[in-house]
Design a protein around this nucleic acid. Structure first.
Length: 569
RNA sequence: CGGGGUGUAGCUCAGCCAGGUUAGAGCACUUGUUUUGGGAACAAGAGGCCCUCGGUUCGAAUCCGAGCACCCCGACCA
């Protein structure tokens, strides 16, 4: 490719929309162009990198027996009704109507479609495990796009699905794909670590995310400084402070004028926040949910959502709380259901079971209750772990370890789905005994655009991108200085042609630009090898070869240049 | 959806508060001359529905109202 003909130009200044170094480089190097929030075009260089990246992913998926397919973007909503996700999938599906008013969802993921494919194609255990994957555009009705390619509304995903004859088989498939991911990220020069994760709207049991740790990440990962246990905050198990056992004391109302927060309450009554009961109100699909949690803990909305069966959650504001006949600053589960003007569900964190004599609200302003005890004074509809772990909290997986918090980008996610979809959609096969069985499923995603963004975030310096060889848009970048002088242009053209004949991907800077501009662009674009052809070098019968990450260049005789470069590329 | 911010040339921004000639700069782009090893110099040019709609006014990029878009923080996820 001749740089003079490239339909994208480099930018000296990054558009103001970009904040992270990676996003700025993506725009400055002319790899992508935004069309709308979370929707981007890939320009020639960006698309070449994407295609190479896809190819590396394909090789790793094929290596473990993956079979590439291509499934439709348009998915009949009836299929989603069959799996039960038409109502529960959050955010809601993007749905278009065809000319006969039939509703089609733009696929945000393909569990339903692939399960349908499997049930129609595979009838025997002999064809299993079945590993199918595709690399394809996904559409999500995201609440908020973010960070360039980090969070998109339309994006490219590599999604693989495994179908096994039994649960042991699923474990094996999962492990094989897990290992393939480890290998893949290593090959891409990207340090990514697996962490425990919630399975969210996809469903299923075990699930791990591959995180690239970076300050610009949007997820928070907790890592135990003792045992190494790593988990997304939405999933992390922490050891909550245990309170000493004590005899239950009598309920007692105390005046707490103007006290509305746990902090103020603890201060006012001279007790630790762990001796208080915090009340938080949520609207869960319109239903009023009262969450009771010890004052020293925070609500983990993912855990809460799971406890409520996947409802869409929203914190209620004080007005809504008041409209329900309750007092936001002094709410209490004691006598709550009698007082509330509408149906209310009470969800309690499991710490309430072992935390005696707490201070809770009195359901009226300026008053609280002492010695509130679960069971005796109030009961919840659901009692489970709904508290969020944070930095410094004790790890539940070992003795003595505490969590460090890190930011990360989730570039891959693997799930053991089990039989959630295969049962609903009737994906059955015959086993060795001729008995009908339901297939056991797993799914494994990689966000390809996001992966590209992470690779750039990880592989750049102050001058630009430093492409890993495996996905660089071009292997060699020829810089011709003073192309109109002393045979420079001829030598550069010949090098360009001969390298291409050898199958090397070459970018050729044939523009009439000053040396400074050309070198700066070469650094910005970041191809692994730079060859400088100039009058000065040609006088010695040489060209200059420099690796993008090397400090110094090497003079190589012109006659050997093609051979050398072809060997290095 | 809640909170914060921004919309003026391809990009970065000034002008707006205190309304008043043909709306500016730098970068990028075109032409010419001179340069030529780390974002050159000079000269000449092209390029703007000042986000949209409505209002106030003799007159609106500027003031007022509504809307839209984009960015950031939270809920969603690859």
């Amino acid at each position: 490719m001749r740089l003079s003909k490239l339909i994208a130009s480099t930018l000296r200044e990054a558009p103001s929309e970009a904040e992270t170094p990676g996003h700025q480089l993506l725009l400055r190097a002319g790899l992508i162009q935004q069309l709308a929030a979370g929707i981007y075009s890939f320009l020639p260089l960006g698309w070449r990198a994407m295609r190479k990246l896809e190819q590396v992913i394909r090789e790793e998926m094929d290596a473990i027996g993956g079979q590439e397919v291509h499934m439709p973007v348009l998915q009949p909503v009836e299929l989603w009704a069959e799996s039960g996700r038409l109502e529960t999938y959050i955010p809601p599906l993007l749905i278009v109507k065809d000319r006969r008013d039939r509703e089609l969802a733009l696929g945000p993921t393909h569990e339903e479609v692939v399960t349908d494919l499997f049930r129609k194609q595979v009838q025997s255990y002999r064809n299993m495990p079945a590993l199918v994957y595709q690399i394809q555009n996904k559409f999500r009705n995201e609440v908020r796009a973010r960070g360039g390619l980090i969070r998109l509304r339309e994006f490219i995903m590599k999604d693989m699905y495994s179908f096994d004859a039994d649960w042991d088989g699923l474990d094996k498939s999962y492990d094989a794909i897990f290992s393939a991911y480890v290998k893949l990220f290593k090959r891409l020069s990207l340090p990514a670590i697996p962490v425990d994760a919630d399975s969210g709207a996809i469903g299923g049991k075990d699930s791990e995310e591959f995180m690239y740790l970076t300050e610009v990440g949007e997820d928070t990962v907790l890592i135990c400084n003792e045992c190494g246990y790593a988990a997304n905050t939405e999933k992390a198990d922490h050891r909550k402070l245990a309170l000493p056992e004590e005899a239950l004391a009598d309920l007692e109302e105390v005046a707490t004028p103007g006290i509305k927060t746990i902090e103020a309450l603890a201060e006012f009554l001279k007790v630790g926040p762990e001796r208080t009961l915090k009340a938080v109100f949520y609207a869960a699909d319109g239903e009023l949910v009262f969450v009771a949690i010890r004052g020293d803990l925070e609500v983990n909305e993912t855990k809460l959502r799971n406890a409520l069966g996947g409802a869409e959650l929203r914190l209620m504001d004080d007005k809504e709380v008041a409209a329900a006949g309750l007092v936001a600053g002094s709410a209490s589960p004691v006598g709550l259901k009698e007082l509330a003007k509408r149906e209310v569900r009470i969800v309690a964190d499991d710490t309430v079971l072992s935390s005696p004599n707490l201070v809770a609200g009195a359901n009226k302003a300026d008053a609280h209750l002492r010695n509130v005890n679960y069971e005796r004074d109030w009961q919840a509809d659901i009692v489970t772990d709904i508290s969020e772990a944070g930095e410094g909290d004790a790890c539940a997986r070992c003795e003595g370890g505490t969590f460090d918090a890190k930011r990360g980008i989730e570039i891959g996610h693997v799930f053991k789905l089990g039989t959630v979809y295969t049962e609903k959609l009737g994906a059955k096969f015959l086993d060795a005994e001729g008995k009908q069985q339901v297939a056991v499923m797993g799914c494994y995603g990689i966000g390809v655009d996001r992966l590209l963004a992470a690779i750039i975030e990880e592989n750049h310096d102050e001058n630009g991108i430093v492409w890993p060889k495996s996905i660089a848009p071009f292997a060699v970048h020829i810089v011709a200085l003073n192309p109109d002088k002393e045979g420079v242009s001829e030598a550069a053209e010949r090098l360009y042609d001969e390298l291409r004949e050898r199958g090397v991907d070459v970018l050729y800077d044939d523009r009439e630009e000053s040396a400074g501009v050309k070198f700066a662009d070469a650094d910005l674009l970041g191809m692994p090898l730079r060859v400088t052809v100039s009058p000065r070098n040609l006088k010695q019968g040489s060209v200059e070869i420099k690796g993008r990450s090397e400090a110094d260049a090497e003079m190589v005789p012109l006659s050997e240049a093609v051979e050398r470069l072809a060997g290095m590329a």
